[in-house]
Design a protein around this nucleic acid. Structure first.
Lengths: 224, 224
DNA sequence: AACCAAAACCAATTCGAAATTGGTTTAGGC
DNA sequence: GCCTAAACCAATTTCGAATTGGTTTTGGTT
């Protein structure tokens, strides 16, 4: 067996990468297979791959394979991982940071139909006979505001945030009054948010949402 | 076999729900098993379950099972779905809405170590010999800002946003100059953001980040 | 003794068939 | 005609085998 230098292996690998027809996800053949087809040993190939990985040309993962390009951040938006890592106060903090900006975008982009739906959700929340149904309409209202931003990515992030929020607060049954009291603070706060959005007042909508969420946060702290 | 009325089945089911020790995810036993233990037929049980489902008491899904409570919104934050639905302009819009608020939180919560890391990333981005390495340090800088918010959920949402962003812009290789020019606009903008964060100036940090992203957006539009 | 290549082993992940679960239809009894 | 049980179908989960990268061991050569 003629001795093959590290440089030769690296050159063959680069040539391979420059010419091979790879699948869409940029996945290379398995090391054992690639070593064979390049006529080099697996250990030498692994050395060359390590070099390319340090240059950001490829990335490798046990059990998955070897891929061209930079290693993606592991954000397979894993909701369960987020739920394990966070807590109710963080959730409130994230909501206070994020949702006013969603409301701001909604004020600039909402359709008349969406504003009408916000009003409908708001009224139904007020008339809800049980807490559970109140929360259904509350959720519907907040999501309609996200839809009204006309930005599917913002909506996706809002949905992610809400999924985490529900999981974090899961099991917290309200064994208190059957339904929200008539003077439930959120009613007036919802009305202010929706009015600002209807008025196309971005700053007003963001401010009203921020006040609403700080109010929710304050009530939440009272219950701890 | 004594005839069992629908009302009886429903009562037994409600009693079961009121007393059973269910797993954390609220999953009920499989229909066939539950029918047996309640001593009712499966068809009758299914009828009762349908009633409870219409009341929002339980939800059912083929292949998964039957669970207490409301059916969760399908927000298994699916990054691929987000990528399919969005576009570069939406990504920029979402960044402009979201990242200034992350910077604001970072200004209030960053540790000295994190500020030092931001500075390091900033300098390394400036000195990067290739666009690829510039982008690595740029990404690192933005993520450190997210970490500095000390809110794992905000960081999770930022990571999600960045994963979508990379997927949406994937394949856009920079075949232009080998490295960023010395007067690349982002350098000064990065410096302003980091300075505001170090100064604990939340509004200043948010404003600097917003300006930076609007600048990026503007350059992006110039390239379309 | 040092080095290298191949083989063996280990940990993480994927794959696919079988099993499970809700949804629907069919068959048989009253 | 109605009801019940059984059979069938579609969606999902489960689990062992296979695959893939990472590391160690073995054996040969210098």
């Amino acid at each position: 067996m003629i001795e093959i230098t590290d440089a030769t292996v690296l050159t063959r690998l680069r040539d391979f990468l420059a010419t091979a027809a790879l699948p869409d996800d940029g996945r290379l053949p398995p090391e054992r297979e690639l070593a064979q087809s390049l006529e080099v040993g697996r250990a030498a190939l692994r050395k060359a791959l390590a070099t390319l990985q340090s240059e950001g040309v490829v990335w490798r993962h046990v059990g998955k394979g070897t891929f061209t390009g930079e290693r993606p951040i592991d954000t397979v938006a894993d909701i369960n991982a987020m739920v394990q890592r966070t807590n109710p106060l963080e959730v409130m903090g994230a909501r206070i940071a994020f949702e006013p900006e969603v409301a701001r975008c909604a004020a600039l982009h909402a359709t008349a139909g969406q504003v009408a739906e916000m009003r409908s959700c708001m009224l139904k929340a007020q008339q809800a006979p049980t807490w559970r149904q109140y929360e259904q309409w509350d959720n519907r209202l907040h999501r309609t505001i996200g839809e009204a931003s006309q930005n599917s990515l913002l909506l996706g992030l809002l949905d992610t945030l809400n999924a985490v929020r529900r999981a974090v607060t899961w099991g917290r049954l309200r064994d208190t009054p059957l339904r929200p009291p008539a003077d439930h603070h959120s009613f007036e706060e919802h009305a202010r948010i929706v009015a600002a959005i209807a008025d196309r007042d971005g700053a007003g909508a963001a401010d009203a949402m921020r006040r609403h969420l700080r109010s929710v946060e304050s009530h939440m702290r009272d219950r701890l």
